[in-house]
């Protein structure tokens, strides 16, 4: 513990920047792929990023522990959720792992069906996952089994909808709670006007696409 102000944080010289390209990632992840051979799938590398798909979402805790303890992925960057509407299983949970020691990035994803909407928490393995999981619960409605404090985080407690699901309209739905909390639908004037993927211009041009 430095006592005086003059003993300020040290600045260390750093070698000139260097791009780290991990060409040996498949090699590095071999123990993991070996351990969970039946349920892990290495996706094609896109833009230099390694993506793993976990077929059996029940194993998420085991895989996370393995990543943290055996492969030095000590830094959980982010957890995202994707709603693949009309696909089964519907929800995809995406974990962005990073290692401060080896400077490697790894994406791990798994899917959860709509009926189940449940996944095991990893908030005791990575404390940072606590708020991310709460956010996913808030936005997508996926419950995390064993989470210490699964409440809404961004919307107010008691809000009945899950806004990031695809069927939820951007403008929102009117809600009136007995305690005074309320939301109204925003005026969209026919919008939002969104383009979609199509080979034909008349189908791809921006149109009002309000969800059913």
């Amino acid at each position: 513990m430095s006592a005086t102000a003059s003993e300020a944080p040290l600045t260390k010289p750093h070698s000139a920047g260097h791009k780290i390209l991990h060409t040996d990632s498949a090699e590095y992840l071999k123990p993991l792929l070996h351990e969970f051979a039946e349920s892990l799938e290495l996706r094609p590398i896109f833009r230099g990023e390694i993506s793993l798909y976990l077929r059996d979402a029940e194993l998420i805790r085991e895989v996370s522990l393995f990543l943290r303890d055996k492969l030095n992925y000590d830094y959980l960057l982010d957890i995202s959720s994707v709603d693949h509407e009309n696909e089964e299983p519907r929800f995809e949970i995406v974990y962005e792992h990073y290692s401060l020691q080896t400077k490697r990035h790894l994406r791990l994803s798994c899917r959860v069906s709509e009926e189940k909407s449940e996944l095991h928490t990893i908030s005791d393995i990575y404390p940072t996952a606590n708020w991310h999981e709460r956010e996913i619960y808030d936005m997508m409605g996926i419950k995390f089994i064993g989470h210490p404090d699964l409440r809404r985080i961004l919307m107010w407690e008691g809000y009945p909808h899950f806004p990031l699901r695809k069927e939820f309209p951007l403008e929102g739905l009117p809600v009136h709670m007995p305690d005074g909390h309320f939301t109204d639908a925003a005026p969209m004037e026919g919008g939002p006007f969104v383009t979609s993927t199509s080979d034909f211009a008349h189908e791809a041009e921006p149109r009002s696409r309000t969800p059913h």
Binding site: P163, F168, G172, D184, A185, A186, M188, G191, P192
Partner: peptide, 12 residues
Amino acid sequence: SGGMYRSYAVLQ
């Protein structure tokens, strides 16, 4: 008026 945030969370 809610401005550029025409969304479910913003009071207009």
